[in-house]
């Protein structure tokens, strides 16, 4: 697939035009996969289960040459699911996630990332669960690997609305306490909470031996603060408003944001949390790549080498 077409497939604005989240998720994953040299679907199980027809990107090592000899067609050998893996997707649905004047809000972007990940994980026969949170967990779908389970996750994502305040730190503690079986915890949030609380929560998760990936979702405006004219900034999540000349505040604002990011990044590094900043104006494949990298790391640590 040409590079431009792939980019278009992963462009958040383009994807946002698709009506169903399932469709979005599939487009993201297919677009993402088409750019990979190796199929992300193969080699995660050990017991042979069935054959499936070869698709572009599949590792040639898994072609069943015997079947080819008999039928003159390429088939890939598939194996039984290894259900050791569980991925928990935590999506922030607080009001601050609703920001997105350019077209795609952080929440929408986060939803698409979550859906795509769920789709990908489900396709890999791993179990994926979903938790939506604000000040605490508001909706939870326990991990599962069936297609029905995937559809339930997508349904929840599709019907969620950003609202209310956030307490990310508390939520992370709550999640750490609830999830007993170790797995990958993917947090999709703008992390607008007290930095110490957030880092404590992340540390708690790591303490529970979870692999943690923090997708820090920020709008392009939040990263660049492009305003010029006199503006009344109305705070989301019940924060006060401020009338100011943006030009005069820009430098100090960006300093404050970068300071926050630096602290968050440092904390993540200290606690071995995979931190990834996601600019909502950028394509979505970054999130998937990050996830796959994290998963590979987990497998490497657990001693299971596949493919």
């Amino acid at each position: 697939m040409p590079e431009t077409a792939r980019h278009k497939l992963l462009d958040p604005k383009t994807l946002n035009k698709l009506s169903r989240l399932e469709l979005k998720a599939r487009s993201i994953v297919e677009g993402f996969i088409s750019g990979l040299h190796r199929s992300p679907y193969h080699g995660f199980s050990v017991e042979f289960a069935e054959h499936r027809e070869y698709v572009a990107g599949d590792d040639l090592r898994y072609i069943d040459w015997k079947v080819f000899g008999r039928s003159d067609r390429f088939y890939i050998k598939q194996y039984e699911e290894e259900t050791n893996y569980r991925c928990h997707l935590l999506l922030d649905t607080s009001e601050s996630m609703a920001y997105g004047p350019g077209g795609v809000s952080k929440f929408e972007y986060g939803s698409m990332v979550a859906a795509a990940l769920a789709y990908l994980i489900s396709k890999q026969q791993d179990a994926v669960g979903l938790a939506l949170f604000r000040e605490n967990l508001v909706k939870q779908v326990p991990p599962g690997s069936s297609h029905q389970h995937l559809l339930q996750i997508l349904h929840e994502l599709e019907h969620a609305k950003p609202d209310g305040k956030t307490k990310l730190g508390a939520v992370l503690h709550e999640v750490a306490e609830k999830i007993t079986r170790k797995g990958i915890v993917v947090v999709l949030t703008d992390a607008f909470d007290d930095i110490e609380n957030v880092l404590d929560g992340l540390q708690h998760l790591r303490h529970r031996r979870h692999e943690v990936v923090l997708f820090h979702l920020l709008d392009h405006d939040e990263l660049t603060f492009p305003f010029r004219d006199m503006t009344r900034f109305e705070g989301l999540e019940a924060l006060p408003e401020l009338l100011a000349s943006p030009q005069s505040l820009k430098k100090a604002y960006l300093e404050a944001l970068q300071d926050f990011q630096a602290k968050l990044r440092k904390g993540c590094r200290d606690y071995n949390v995979d931190y990834r900043l996601l600019d909502t104006s950028e394509p979505l494949d970054v999130a998937l790549t990050t996830y796959l990298t994290a998963r590979s790391a987990v497998r490497a640590r657990s001693g299971t080498v596949r493919g």
Binding site: K106, D229, L236, E237, L242, L249, A256
Partner: peptide, 18 residues
């Protein structure tokens, strides 16, 4: 002035106080 509903208000308020 323009009105903008702003998410990263904490940082803006920090910047303003500073």
């Amino acid at each position: 002035y323009k009105r903008v509903r702003w998410a990263a208000m904490e940082f803006l308020l920090t910047a303003y106080k500073k």
